[in-house]
Design a binder for these strands. Structure first.
Lengths: 129, 129
DNA sequence: TTTGAGCTTCCAGCAGGTGGAAGCCCTATA
DNA sequence: TATAGGGCTTCCACCTGCTGGAAGCTCAAA
């Protein structure tokens, strides 16, 4: 099938699929006219990539996960290890954002938000270290 | 003062400070030898930027906030508006990450993580749409 | 045959920096 | 006074993960 069909079936934009080929995540065969020709297996891989990316795995994570997926002999422990490391990264990001959120919402609460110039948000950003 | 000193005082790497000059966030004057010469006010701005970035404001947000900070006449409502919009962005990111986290930690829980090949994490990533 | 959609490649750019090379400048020490 | 080092300068490339657009080919329908 052509890239447009593969895009529809996998949920990824054609541009992204070409990019994934560029960085060697997938290797669809080519028709005689030069068009990419995707097999069902290719689409399956693309779906895999789409889901893994939606879970926030990096491209390099995806590359390894895809290899593990294709390796009939792999141990599930290897996959779990990657997933756990990724979970730690997500947790760190959540913690980071939550602390930002608390700081910022506190600042917003203390700001009158009217047309007077005094503003605790700016004051805080500008305060001496 | 030289860029090294400004870097130490502001907590920003010298490279980042040069970049901020490049994109016109700051305009330190120059010594006759071509070296940047930072005033206390410049360092104050850099600290402001450092804090605002740590709160996750984009560079363009920072540009506006810095202008508002320098404008004695500005209304605190303008600042509050930017802050509130940014809070909404943070909340969306937290929601996103939290949902990822839940999916992933569920997958991890169901994975035995031993040396057998059967792995629910990969199965889920690969399942038919 | 012509139109229009879909495909190809390649080049550029987004955010927000970071790394490195080549080369000047300044100071301390031998 | 020569030299070694560290800090400064500019410029260019690279990072992640795409995305947009231009130029040009191919294909199917009218």
């Amino acid at each position: 099938m052509n890239i447009g069909t593969a895009a529809k079936r996998s949920g990824l934009p054609a541009k992204t699929i070409r990019y994934y080929e560029d960085i060697d995540l997938i290797r669809p065969r080519r028709d005689t006219n030069g068009y990419r020709d995707f097999s069902d297996r290719d689409v399956h891989k693309l779906l895999f990539l789409c889901r893994a990316r939606a879970l926030g795995f990096t491209i390099e994570n995806c590359r390894v996960l895809l290899e593990l997926w294709e390796d009939q002999e792999r141990a599930s422990g290897d996959v779990k290890q990657i997933a756990r490391e990724h979970l730690a990264v997500i947790d760190a990001k959540i913690a980071d954002l939550t602390s930002m959120r608390e700081n910022l919402s506190h600042l917003i609460e203390t700001c009158s938000g009217d047309d007077r110039p005094d503003c605790p948000i700016l004051n805080d950003l500008a305060k001496a270290g």
